[in-house]
């Protein structure tokens, strides 16, 4: 069923001189089992948007329906929504607090009112999903490396067994290897757990290769919502928004301008290499 976002707006500091429109009449549908990239620069409204989805921020106008029910309705169970729509914040390792990794991951399930045994079971599953080495389950979360901390924090949300998992800039501040690990992990989780994942990012290169759909936000509006290839055809408009298409898109565009009849739809190095090789005969090499 998923989430239906119907014409929502959100204002910060409403009614004051400092009023800011963070969301401006946004509508979208988020179905089950889809991998979505949500792109926008800082201040585009993307973080506000994802916080409205699990009811952390209440929309100023418009409605959000989860499985057909209005999440601001009187009878709606917000706690259930928060466990079904998991939200991993930016730098999630800053929320770790327990004495050991496994207790920290059990925090979520316990809050759902589950027994210790059940909470533990879920925590173990979640830690396995994020490929946490077993030897670290009993370590203090503060002794882990940067990448491990982040994975522990993701496990903490995963243990709530969300149907929709939103990750806000999960690769921020990581080195190339840490970044590839986390992205690979998320893509793996998507396949294993059959959930919807929304990956919030300002890097097109990060999301391009993984997602089925890209939503681009700017100035509080949802500007594009389409398959990656189609979104990246708007390179010029994206640049005006302070966003860039994947580097490969630019390379292919240049080759095309120089007269090589390649399609500029390639998003990854592999696709680009294949596309160029398909035009082997036109090359001057």
């Amino acid at each position: 069923m998923g989430i239906k976002v119907d014409d929502i707006s959100f204002l910060y500091e409403r009614g004051t001189a400092m009023q800011v429109t963070a969301l401006d009449h946004v509508s979208a549908e988020i179905p089950d089992n889809q991998f979505i990239g949500l792109i926008g620069h800082t201040g585009s409204g993307k973080s506000t948007f994802v916080q409205t989805l699990n009811g952390l921020l209440k929309v100023t106008s418009g409605h959000i329906y989860y499985n057909g029910e209005d999440i601001d309705g009187d009878k709606f169970d917000k706690k259930k929504l928060r466990s079904d729509v998991g939200l991993v914040f930016q730098y999630p390792e800053h929320q770790l607090f327990e004495v050991d990794v496994i207790s920290d991951v059990m925090f979520g399930p316990r809050n759902l009112g589950l027994s210790d045994a059940e909470a533990k079971k879920r925590a173990l599953e979640a830690l396995e999903s994020v490929r946490m080495p077993k030897s670290l389950y009993k370590s203090s979360p503060f002794d882990l490396s940067g990448g491990q901390k982040r994975r522990a924090a993701i496990a903490g949300v995963l243990a709530m067994r969300p149907k929709i998992l939103i990750l806000d800039e999960p690769t921020a501040g990581l080195d190339p290897k840490g970044r590839d690990e986390i992205l690979g992990l998320i893509a793996g989780m998507k396949k294993e757990l059959n959930m919807t994942i929304i990956l919030v990012s300002h890097s097109m290169d990060d999301v391009a290769r993984y997602v089925d759909r890209i939503m681009v936000m700017g100035g509080g509006k949802l500007l594009y919502d389409d398959e990656p290839v189609k979104v990246f055809r708007h390179v010029t408009e994206l640049e005006e928004l302070g966003l860039a298409a994947p580097q490969i898109t630019y390379i292919m565009k240049l080759l095309k301008e120089r007269g090589l009849d390649v399609s500029s739809d390639a998003l990854t190095v592999e696709e680009a290499a294949a596309e160029i090789m398909a035009h082997r005969r036109e090359l001057h090499v």
Binding site: D175, P176, K177, D205, P246, Q247, I248, I251, V269, E270, A272, A273, I276, M277, L283, V285
Partner: peptide, 19 residues
């Protein structure tokens, strides 16, 4: 455990393919 710029990587792939 480091990257190279994507364009360098693409050139590398193309070389591997025989260009």
């Amino acid at each position: 455990q480091l990257d190279v710029p994507q364009v360098t990587l693409l050139a590398y792939e193309l070389r591997k393919k025989g260009l």
